[in-house]
């Protein structure tokens, strides 16, 4: 005996799609015949019900629009966060070498600031040991020969205007820094 017919087959039979085999099974199987008749009965009842006027409809209280908008707002925020994250990831990363170079140049700049007070670059010129000694002697008020004083005074008068690297120049000539007049006066008094 053939297995019982499926619900869909029974429905297709009611729509006129039936093979001889199915028809013979339907006639010989009380269970399938019963299911087939039940389906027809239900369908008639459903159709009759739906042909009548529908019962009064009432829409249950709706959730406030704020609550219903929460998932939408959350979705928008998530999309924005994803886009932001993606843009961050796609941005090229500075290499470790670039980072190191940046750090070094920043460090040098800070050191330069600390050493030279103001921002401008100053030139420190090397001096000869003679002028160096003269300057130190004058500054300490030690006995200094006429040549020594002259050397020092010359170095002050030339000061910052000329920065040629000669022996007659001051020991340390710092461009832009004025010579202290008191110091100059003292030196000239001593020279007399």
């Amino acid at each position: 005996m053939n297995p019982c017919l499926e619900d869909k087959t029974l429905f297709l039979i009611s729509e006129g799609e039936v093979s001889e085999e199915q028809q013979s099974h339907l006639l010989s199987c009380p269970s399938c015949a019963k299911r087939y008749h039940e389906m027809g009965r239900d369908l008639r009842f459903i159709t009759q019900t739906l042909q009548q006027e529908p019962p009064a409809l009432r829409i249950a209280a709706r959730a406030p629009i704020v609550y219903k908008s929460l998932p939408l707002a959350a979705g928008v925020l998530l999309a924005i966060a994803l886009l932001w994250g993606e843009s961050r990831l796609s941005r090229p990363h500075p290499s470790s070498e670039q980072i190191a170079n940046g750090d070094v140049s920043q460090f040098l700049e800070q050191v330069s600031e600390a050493i030279f007070e103001r921002g401008s670059i100053r030139e420190v010129e090397t001096a000869s040991s003679e002028s160096d000694l003269a300057s130190v002697q004058v500054a300490l008020g030690e006995n200094c020969s006429a040549d020594c004083r002259e050397l020092f005074i010359n170095s002050l008068s030339t000061d910052v205007k000329f920065k040629t690297k000669t022996v007659e120049q001051p020991v340390v000539a710092i461009r832009g820094r004025p010579v202290d007049p008191a110091m100059q006066h003292m030196v000239s008094d001593r020279g007399r």
Partner: peptide, 13 residues
């Protein structure tokens, strides 16, 4: 979408 949260209720006389 606006109305989907409201459940349809039937009341027959």
């Amino acid at each position: 979408w606006r109305s989907s949260n409201g459940e349809v209720q039937f009341a027959e006389y």
